[in-house]
Design a protein around this nucleic acid. Structure first.
Lengths: 162, 162
DNA sequence: GATCGGATGTTATAGTATCACATCCGATCA
DNA sequence: TGATCGGATGTGATACTATAACATCCGATC
C-alpha cells in the first residue's frame, strides 16, 4: 500500500517490528556515513532502544535500560547520545511529553509534526508540507526566519475515541 | 491599523504596556465571571505577573516575584495558579521553553501558535485558522480527535535575523 | 610514541514539577 | 449562631528532567 505522503498511520500492533527497527538502524548508518558523523556503539544502542518502542521514551527510561547492560551510565550518557541523534535528525524530542522518539524520515528535515493519543500514548508522525508552507508564509510576513518547527497535537486516536 | 486576523505583531517596545496589562486583566475578570470561575487574588496576581513581561516567564521566576510580596510562596502556589489560568485559557505554556505567557485571545480556544525568537526571546502569537483546519483534516483522516494543538516555531525575528 | 580532539565517565547540582497532608475560609443551611 | 462542606492555599518533602565541570579514555595523525 502506498503512503499518502502527507501523514503516516499509527503503528500497527502486528507490523514486523524487528525489520522496522533494523531498517531504521540501517538508515542511520548510511546517513551518518554520508555526513562523516560518528555513530558510536553507545549512540547506536541508544537509537536502537528508542526504536524498540514505537512510543515516546523518556531519557531516564533509556538510562535505566542502559544501566542494565553497561556498568556505567549516568544522565549525561544518555542526554549526550540523544543530543547527537537529535542534531542528526534521527530522533525527535516531543516537548509536551519530555520524551523522545525515532524519526521515520531522517533524510528530510523538520518533519516534526505529531499526533499524540492521550488515551493509549500512541504517536503518529505527520509530514505535511502544506503545514510547513503555511507557517513559512505567516512567518515571512513578519520578517521571521524559521529555524525549526514543533507541532504536537494532543487528542484521541481512532481506538481510544470511542 | 487593523489586525490581519491571522497573525499578530511582535510586541512593540513603546506600546502602552500599562493599559495592555490592564486590558488583559479586564478580559480575565469578565471571562471568569461569565463562567462562574473564581479569579482569586493569588490567581489574579500571577496572571498580572505573567502579563507584566511580554516574554515567556518561568514558573520559578514567578515564584521569586511572589516571594517578594507574600511571605509564603512555594512551587505548588504558582503551579496551581498556572494550572487554573491554563485551564481557563488565560495563559499558555510554551513547551519548548518550559515557560508561560498570557494569551492574547482568551475568548477563543486553541490559539496556541507561537513564533519564538532564538535571538532576543521575543514571542509572537499567531492565530491562523487555516493551520488549525489543515491539522484537523489530517487528523480526521486517521480518525484522530483533536483535543489541543501545540505549534511552536523557533527562528529569528526581523531584528535578529540581520 | 607524542599529541590532539572528540567521546565517554563521574560527581555534583541546577531546574522543573508534583504529592500528600494540613489549614483556612467563604457559602450554605440546620 | 454555629455546623459542615468543598475549594483554595499553606507546607514540607520528594520525584522528575537536564546540565555543568572536570577527569579519563581512545583512536587518528604525524
Amino acid at each position: 500500500m502506498a503512503r499518502r505522503g502527507v501523514i503516516q498511520d499509527f503503528v500497527d500492533e502486528k507490523h514486523d517490528h524487528a525489520s522496522c527497527v533494523e531498517d531504521a538502524m540501517q538508515r542511520a548508518e548510511v546517513l551518518c556515513g554520508e555526513r562523516g558523523e560518528r555513530l558510536t556503539p553507545l549512540r547506536r544502542r541508544v537509537l536502537e532502544l528508542v526504536w524498540d518502542n514505537h512510543q515516546p521514551v523518556k531519557a531516564y527510561e533509556l538510562l535505566a535500560m542502559l544501566a542494565g547492560e553497561r556498568k556505567r551510565a549516568a544522565p549525561p550518557t544518555v542526554y549526550r547520545a540523544l543530543d547527537f541523534l537529535r542534531d542528526a535528525g534521527l530522533v525527535h524530542k516531543i516537548e509536551s511529553l519530555n520524551a523522545f522518539i525515532g524519526c521515520a524520515k531522517p533524510d528530510r528535515r523538520h518533519c516534526a509534526q505529531f499526533l499524540l493519543c492521550i488515551g493509549c500514548g500512541a504517536v503518529a508522525e505527520m509530514d505535511d508540507p502544506t503545514l510547513t508552507g503555511k507557517i513559512a508564509t505567516n512567518a515571512k510576513r513578519l520578517g521571521f526566519r524559521v529555524h525549526q518547527e514543533t507541532i504536537e497535537v494532543e487528542g484521541y486516536c481512532g481506538s481510544c475515541a470511542g
